[in-house]
Design a protein around this nucleic acid. Structure first.
Lengths: 150, 150
DNA sequence: GCAACTGGTCCTATTATAAGACCAACCTGG
DNA sequence: CCAGGTTGGTCTTATAATAGGACCAGTTGC
């Protein structure tokens, strides 16, 4: 049967997953954020089947997460560049990275690290209230689409 | 062929997606963060096939994202409760939510909202440097697993 | 000019998902 | 205390997605 879709959902989480929640899209975006731009580079780095990659890249271009631009080396080929919409996925990737780091590695096991320009590891993602105070999960709730403030 | 796995990857993003990057897991966690705990509640709310849900819940329990606890209403049934590891997925869900809100809804289209205890919409996720200064994507880079500082 | 590289398309075997039939244990009203 | 509904699953079947590789046209390097 056809895979269930959420492109019309009231919940932005569901709609987001519908767009980029498949097996490969976020990994492609991760690689794009790391600077990869060419079809062959993605294919080599991910070990993905070329047909899959082709379909995913097309979908990401349709979604305006990536765009095709002339190759930066002057050749006749094209490159896949991140759009603003694609760059805006940065916090999602960082969130996944920090969760993975905290829970999916044995003590002392090596993994790649996100660092700033000085080479210093970055801090944890923070969700601020409107006034700037950091919020935890238990201090928030989801207000349904049509609901009135209370 | 068997779906490609990343459970041994050096990159925490890949390992994270391997764990909870399938079609349903993050939606189940989203619902759990919203307070859902019973099999039937997840099934009704997501419209997921029961077999899928059963398999996903089992996997999430194995991963220690959810745990089975006695039902809070005193019945002989059990409930699925979030563990710390599950609650730590909150920033990932929020990241997805904010990306979806910003890019996947037409102007004026209704969606659910994340608010604080006063009912105020929350702010955007912030990635601070070690010193507390907010960092953007272009101010960071990924240092590969074995690489020496530079 | 030609071999290798790039960026794909297409085909096949296998795996995952959706949908619903089925079932056992529990709970509820009379 | 037991009949019928609720809960929480399992199993089966069809359709869709994925992995892997053969194949191919245009581009590039030599």
């Amino acid at each position: 049967m056809k895979r269930t879709g959420f492109s019309k959902a009231d919940c932005p989480v569901a709609r987001g997953l519908d767009a980029i929640g498949d097996w490969w899209s976020l990994l492609i975006v991760r690689d794009a954020l790391d600077g990869l731009r060419r079809f062959g580079d993605f294919q080599k780095n991910l070990g993905i089947a070329k047909g899959m990659l082709s379909a995913r890249l097309q979908k990401l271009v349709e979604l305006d997460v990536l765009e095709l631009v002339p190759a930066s080396d002057g050749s006749a080929y094209q490159e896949y560049a991140l759009t603003k919409r694609g760059r805006d996925l940065f916090p999602v990737i960082v969130g996944l990275r920090q969760w993975g780091e905290a829970h999916l590695y044995a003590r002392g096991e090596a993994h790649s690290d996100l660092v700033d320009q000085a080479g210093q590891p970055v801090g944890q993602l923070v969700l601020p209230s409107r006034t700037g105070r950091p919020l935890t999960w238990s201090e928030t709730r989801v207000r349904k689409a049509g609901a009135r403030k209370r």
